[in-house]
Amino acid sequence: MSERYRSIVDVYVLLRRDDKILLMERANTGYADGQFCPPSGHLEQEESVIDGAIREAYEEVGVSLRREDLHFVHVVHHRNPKGQARIGFFFEATGWEGEPSNREPEKCAGILWADADKLPPNTVDYTAAAVAQIQDGHEFSIHGWAHG
Rank of each mutant, 00 (worst) to 15 (best):
D115Q: 12
Y31N: 08
G98V: 05
E97R: 14
L112Q: 12
T94L: 07
K118W: 10
H74K: 04
R4C: 06
D51V: 03
D115K: 10
E104D: 04
A114N: 00
P121V: 14
D69M: 06
H78K: 11
R26M: 02
E3K: 13
T29Y: 02
Y5N: 04
L14Y: 05
F91Q: 01
D33N: 07
N122I: 03
V63E: 01
K107P: 00
E46W: 14
E3W: 14
P105L: 08
Y126D: 10
I142Q: 10
V63L: 02
S141G: 15
E139A: 14
H138T: 04
S64Y: 13
C108M: 06
W145Y: 14
S7K: 03
L112T: 04
G148H: 14
V76G: 11
V124T: 07
G144P: 10
F140G: 01
W96S: 06
E97P: 00
L22E: 06
G110W: 13
L23P: 01
I142N: 06
D19R: 15
I50E: 09
E44H: 13
L14W: 02
S101R: 14
E44W: 14
D10P: 00
H42L: 04
A132E: 14
P120Q: 10
E25Q: 15
V75Y: 00
R66V: 01
A93N: 02
R4L: 15
G30S: 04
A128L: 05
V13A: 10
A32N: 13
D125C: 01
V131S: 11
S141E: 08
N80Y: 08
R103S: 07
D117A: 12
